[in-house]
Computed example of a mutant assay.
Amino acid sequence: MVRRMFPMLSTESLDQALSFYRDLLGGTEAFRFPTEGPPVFVTLRLGESELGLGAITDTPPLHGQRLRPAQGHRIELCVYVDDVDATVERLRAAGATIVTEPADQVWGERIAYVMDPDGNLVMLTR
């Protein structure tokens, strides 16, 4: 049985991904490799969750598969926040792409969609 799930995203710009997930969404660095110099992989704690961010480099990955699969919607991260509207405004001010504005849903959640710097959909909800 699964004990825990830990999503890892490949990114064309680790600096931009860190700016989005760490600086704008409040993640805190939990792990960095290598520990000295510019990192190629960083783990962030976001509330009770963790997210891995790996830089796309010329070094082949361990699994041998391309890190940038076919274009299009391949992953969606659901991020629970305290205030969807305030989070959207903070992201908008930083230049993030807002896909859908905050809206109340019939099942009781308030939801908005934004894009991270690599084009991954991020659903903000409370």
Score class of each variant (00 low, 15 high):
V81T: 07
M115A: 14
Q105V: 02
G52C: 06
V106P: 14
L77I: 13
N120W: 05
S19H: 15
S49P: 06
L51H: 02
S13P: 01
Q16W: 02
A70Y: 09
D85A: 12
A93M: 02
S19W: 10
V81L: 09
P117I: 01
E36A: 15
S19Y: 13
S13V: 03
S10G: 01
R110Q: 04
M5R: 10
R126P: 00
D85F: 00
E109C: 00
R66D: 15
V79K: 04
I98W: 05
P117Y: 02
L67C: 07
T11D: 03
I98N: 00
L121G: 00
Y80Q: 12
L25Q: 05
E12Q: 11
L25K: 03
P39T: 04
S49D: 11
E29A: 01
G108V: 10
D85L: 00
G26F: 11
R92Q: 13
I98Y: 01
L77Q: 07
P69M: 06
I98D: 03
A103F: 02
P38S: 14
V84Q: 00
P117G: 04
R3I: 14
V2M: 13
R126T: 14
S49E: 08
T57F: 06
F33D: 11
E101Y: 03
V99S: 04
L51P: 01
D15E: 15
L44E: 03
T57G: 03
I98T: 03
Q105N: 07
D85Q: 11
G37F: 13
G47L: 10
D15Y: 01
D116F: 04
G64R: 12
A30V: 12
G52P: 05
R66F: 02
T43V: 15
E50K: 07
G95L: 09
T87G: 03
R22V: 09
H63M: 11
